[in-house]
């Protein structure tokens, strides 16, 4: 299995170079963290008091899993920007002119994204602990929850690869973050209980993958989860998270790979 060994070795080299970016452009990670912390502060201290939780419980504990999912959803934008940058700077062409494993550019990219987002998640969890978020479940449930979040991150990274290969410039990739990810995260249970949304929007929010992930994380971390009521996705957030993540991967992974292969057309 010499080709498999090359694929792994090349993937590691590509991951290494993608992760080198983090300490070399510290602003990227710092702004990503600051943006999330700003949301934590904004919702925990400004809006939180005005948002009633059906069934009671701490709003801050309700909030943190939503923040985790929102931050990880932005993994797609980070990836898209980086891929678009590599495309416009000719790096992808250079890689394609080398006798390296063809899969490595994308596998190395998405693997590095997982590692990077583990780092972000740790910082956010520490932030959560500071403002009063706690895990009330067992170790296994906690690990299960984290793995679900990372699986979701992996799917988001593949969406990012597809977008990064599709957009003409880095700026367009940046705009996508604001135009797509923000509305999707707000139309969910990440910040407010779905019951407080207008009736017309409730079904959308219930079937939103962000809601499924947030609900699953709340359930597995033992945080207040008013989402767990009266609709199928509301009652089965863990199942829905897995279904959604597999569905997103099943669509965007082949799309991204096909897009990458078609660069030589």
């Amino acid at each position: 299995m010499n080709s498999l060994r090359i694929a792994v070795a090349d993937g590691i080299v590509i991951s290494w170079r993608n992760l080198k970016r983090v300490p070399r452009i510290p602003e990227l990670a710092i702004f990503a963290i600051l943006q999330s912390i700003m949301f934590v502060l904004l919702f925990a201290f400004v809006f939180g008091g005005a948002i009633p939780l059906p069934g009671g419980g701490s709003y801050r504990e309700f909030l943190m899993p939503g923040i985790f999912v929102q931050t990880l959803a932005f993994a797609s934008v980070t990836t898209a920007i980086a891929v678009a940058d590599d495309m416009t700077k000719g790096l992808i062409d250079r890689f394609r002119s080398l006798p390296m494993a063809r899969s490595a550019v994308l596998s190395g990219r998405t693997f590095a994204d997982i590692v990077y987002n583990i780092g972000l998640l740790i910082v956010l969890m520490l932030t959560g602990l500071v403002i009063g978020w706690r895990v009330h479940s067992g170790v296994l449930d906690f690990i299960y929850g984290v793995l679900l979040l990372l699986f979701f991150t992996y799917a988001m990274a593949w969406i990012g690869v597809f977008l990064g290969l599709s957009v003409p410039t880095v700026e367009v990739a940046q705009q996508l973050g604001f135009l797509v990810i923000f509305p999707i995260t707000f139309l969910s249970n990440a910040f407010v209980p779905i019951e407080t949304l207008p009736a017309a929007l409730q079904p959308i929010a219930e079937w939103n993958p962000i809601s499924a992930l947030t609900g699953a994380a709340r359930e597995l971390f033992g945080n207040p989860n008013p989402f767990a009521s009266n609709s199928f996705p509301g009652e089965h957030p863990i199942f829905m998270s897995i279904v959604w993540t597999i569905a997103l991967l099943a669509v965007f992974m082949p799309l991204a790979i096909r897009k990458y292969r078609a660069i030589d057309r």
Binding site: R24, G90, L91, D93
Partner: peptide
């Protein structure tokens, strides 16, 4: 067998 140096220096600026 080949080496390619393109029109734009295709190097990783962060390395």
């Amino acid at each position: 067998l080949i080496g390619l140096s393109g029109q734009y220096a295709a190097i990783d600026e962060n390395l």
